[in-house]
Design a protein around this nucleic acid. Structure first.
Lengths: 142, 142
DNA sequence: TTATTTTAGTTGACTTAGTCAACTAAAATA
DNA sequence: TATTTTAGTTGACTAAGTCAACTAAAATAA
């Protein structure tokens, strides 16, 4: 393989790193860190997740996660329920309060994204989403 | 606008955050931090850049940058030359040593990307790069 | 021309993010 | 039953990043 594809791929990565950075920065101006937001996202979208699940889906250190979760518990965003079958594992779920917090955060992120997408022509929007789906498919397949 | 495009956009962002994270992790196992690698990249690809330039292209704090640059100088990766027209600004350039270091790092990144791309069919590779170009075009245009 | 504001870069003090290894307790496997 | 593995916690630490104050020079306003 010559170097062109590699260069293009990496160029896109640099570009998209900046895009993501921009969006993330927004979250960072909320009361949550990126990691917190992602944890809330995961807990919101799947119930009875465990710390192990989160470690794998988010690729974060278990010690780090443990502390974030303790914070969440203190803030009453989650409750923990020890599994009956395997008492080592603890099921995590957002409380009503936690859900509300997540929804607010999520809405803010949606608004921000919307403000970008609404500038695009219908055609470009379709192309954009199509391209994204394509990339996801290709890079997932393996 | 309904919520579907927004959801898809955000879903892609989550997905691609993981992709980038994977690639970045690789760099982190080298002797350089992400920020260092990006600074080297910028210096390698453009000459006589200033700290201000880097601050803007990389969106990093100037204090932070200042320290990284000092490190680079100590490691003899860059030299600094004060501008004659405006003595506040300092032109930054990689030394031969710095270039060599960057090239090594760059080669490692290339190899890593190559190992991903070589798994793809020719068709998928073309689709992938086309999609990336499309996204870049659409999100840059504004 | 002088006074004021802005810009480039540095430094110190600090907070947040993330890592690593040791540890407890339970479960799975040999 | 002994050993190994797994889930999660904790302590101690390093790295990453932020913020404001500062110096010196340049640009702009009065």
């Amino acid at each position: 393989m010559n170097n062109k594809p590699i260069e293009e791929f990496r160029s896109f990565n640099r570009f998209y790193t900046a895009v993501i950075g921009l969006l993330d920065n927004h979250i960072l101006n909320s009361n949550y860190t990126l990691v917190e937001a992602r944890i809330m996202y995961e807990l919101y979208h799947g119930k009875n997740q465990t710390a192990s699940d989160l470690i794998h889906t988010l690729s974060i250190d278990k010690g780090y996660l443990s502390r974030v979760l303790r914070q969440f518990e203190k803030r009453k965003f989650i409750n923990r329920q020890r599994s009956a079958e395997d008492t080592r594992v603890i099921f995590l779920n957002l409380t009503a309060e936690g859900k509300k917090e997540f929804q607010q955060l999520d809405k803010a992120s949606n608004d921000q994204v919307k403000s970008i997408l609404k500038e695009l022509s219908e055609k470009d929007l379709a192309l954009l989403l199509g391209s994204m789906a394509e990339i996801k498919r290709i890079l997932t397949s393996k």
